[in-house]
């Protein structure tokens, strides 16, 4: 546990050691604002809620979260520090968890910094703050799932650009799994249960359900299992591909 914390602290500091952290946060806030106010018609809707804000999170995350995840392991591979890191007396699970939690915490910080949206909506009306809190939690869980996918992809390459592109493509597929684009691939040959399962696995379907009500425990479990599954794959892939 102590090791996880040490690795977590180093990784989180590493985000702020380069302009990446600041660029990420500024772009995230600006884009969230543009999408909410111009594309989401925040004011024209005349409703005191943050639905236009949260609706665009999956799309923002497809572009931005891979940028957070890409450096996690690819950079260690490129600079050779992976050899130093993995010959320290730490468990693989501690290494994987420490890195992931740092990235997830950073995503959380970016999310918290969107509080002016929450202030605005509370200033203008009387929104259901319970729903807003649930939406924030769901958004953060989704960011975690995206990051776990990204960490896993980052584990097999030393090229951060490849890590970014592959992660973005993968999380896009996850996000739109319920849409005709993906379902079309399965239609015609896949059994009904598989088709149904793929449609249910869509991040978009899951996520869009949340802002309307409370968090469904099954959705939380789903996101957490995605995180655990991809982090487990991450640990295995690092173990297999150390030499490269």
């Amino acid at each position: 546990m102590r090791n996880v914390l040490t690795i977590f602290r180093r990784e989180l500091a590493a985000y702020f050691a380069t302009p990446l952290a600041y660029v990420f946060i500024v772009i995230f806030l600006v884009m969230a604002g543009i999408l909410t106010f111009f594309v989401g018609n925040f004011f024209e809707r005349g409703q005191a809620d943050l639905q236009p804000f949260f609706t665009f999170h999956p799309w923002l995350y497809i572009v931005l979260i891979p940028a957070l995840a890409m450096r996690l392991w690819a950079e260690e591979r490129r600079s050779g520090t992976i050899e130093l890191f993995l010959t320290l007396p730490i468990r693989m699970t501690e290494a994987v968890a420490g890195k992931f939690l740092a990235a997830w915490c950073f995503a959380g910080i970016a999310l918290i910094l969107t509080f002016p949206f929450w202030l605005t909506v509370n200033f203008l009306g009387h929104p259901d703050n319970g729903v807003i809190l649930a939406s924030y939690i769901a958004s953060w869980l989704m960011a975690g799932a995206f990051l776990a996918v990204g960490a896993c992809v980052s584990a097999v390459t030393k090229n951060q650009v490849i890590a970014f592109v592959v992660t973005a493509a993968l999380v896009f597929v996850f996000t739109v799994a319920g849409s005709p684009i993906v379902l079309g691939v399965f239609q015609g040959w896949a059994p009904e249960w598989l088709l149904h399962g793929v449609a249910q696995a869509s991040f978009l379907v899951l996520f869009s359900a949340i802002p309307r009500g409370v968090i469904d425990l099954r959705d939380v479990v789903y996101f957490l299992s995605i995180i655990v599954a991809f982090l487990a794959a991450n640990a295995i892939l690092i173990d297999l591909e150390k030499a490269e």
Binding site: R10, S79, G80, T81, L84, P89, I90
Partner: peptide, 21 residues
Amino acid sequence: PIPAKRHIGYLPEGAPAYPDM
């Protein structure tokens, strides 16, 4: 591996270290 690694000091090839630190 963990107790074994505690007893080792290792300088890997090329002396890698985190460049930003």
